[in-house]
Design a protein around this nucleic acid. Sequence first.
DNA 1: CTAGGGTTAG
Length: 486
Amino acid sequence: MRMIHEGGERVDEITLATVAKATSCLVALEPGKQIHAHVIKTGYSLDLCVISGILDMYIKCGDMGSAHTVFSDIPAPDDVAWTTLISGCLENGDEGRSVSIYRQMRQSGVQPDEYTFATLVKAASCLTALEQGKQIHADAIKLELSLDPYVATSLVDMYAKCGNIEDAYRLFRRMDVRSIVLWNAMLVGLAQHGNAEEALDLFRVMKSNNVVPDRVTFIGVISACSHFGLVSEAYEHFSSMQRDYGVEPEIEHYSCLVDALGRAGRVQEAEKLIASMPFEASASMYRALLGVCRVQGDTETGKRVAEQLLAIEPSDSSAYVLISNMNAAANQWDAVNDARQMMKRKNVKKEPGFSWIDVKNKVHLFMVDDKSHPEADLIYDKLEDLMKRIGEEGYVPDTEFVLADVEEEEKERALYYHSERLAIAYGLISTPSSAIIRVIKNLRVCGDCHNAIKYISKVYQREIVVRDANRFHRFRNGSCSCGDYW
DNA sequence: CTAGGGTTAG
């Protein structure tokens, strides 16, 4: 900065590019703007290295408005400039825009490189857009960039996150040089799918290949144990992590362990562990425990945990929702109303549940009771037919999962139109009968839908993969890969 | 001389 102001020394494009990068690392918008002004004044804004440094600076500072302006002023953006913008949209949570900017990039004739694909595949992974991800993969293969270590890791993660663990594995096996990040992506993918044994096997293979596990590896390993109910193994890995690998436990590791205890129903032990941590408790830990209390119907402990959660996050809608769910399950409708009143008073909004499905390269999103889809009539007919058929097969609606105090029959209908069922009904009518139906839901799948989907997989002989906020459920012939443990 | 953009967890 002194160089700029004093003006005596030679400030060339290399210096400016370097300074712009330094500024973007510091995430300092004001000095960044000064450098930008100086770049314009001295005419260096036509230099691609300098201007993409400036672009990155705005992105890192979260000023996407300025970033788009800077980009649109670049006369002929090269691969680096395009990739910077694509990764900027991703970093700022606008993954859809990353993909559409990629399309513009292709139209402009600039060839993407391995950096572009690593970023872009991650965007598809965040969007859980399998079809788009596959298409991007195909592009990468055409340009012979799909086996780049970063691209391949992104692809493994993308396939795993989109519920296609087989393709993730296939790609993983093809890689003859495997970085720790690649191992971790595969391991975490397996853990999220509830394939705990495979995840733990992979962990052993990894160690026998002399790959040293790191902090992320242990997050995967402990969460694999957690998903499989292996509490003592979780504890063992937790202590081995420090003892054998010098990885200090972080709040994320505690969080996995708390989760493992909770899922095993050992809520009080989990509370003790939280109290003994060298960290402040996180809201997500209490949220996990609250979910356990609800599944177990332990209203007393649930209330205590909910209070602890609200002490950290007073406007956490999930606390209120879980409290009111528990009370609804116990038929304590006064308490349900109290929780609702309190939400109103504190102006806490319930996070709306929605599910989506990727059909023919297009994402179809459904809310509860949603009739906005162009094929809504067909979908609701299918749903009607479907509910009749699974009823004949023995499905009984469990109205415990309805949040309102309404009559029984009405309660049943409220369950019919949960967003995941709409998405599955659409999947049934819009995909070939042999295709796997893959649905993603932003919240945790409800117990009744979980049960209904088991029946649907049996009656229609369809494999259905549902990714909820927590993990994957793979429904086949009437049962789920989670073993009803989630 | 050759700057500026990339992967796993939460």
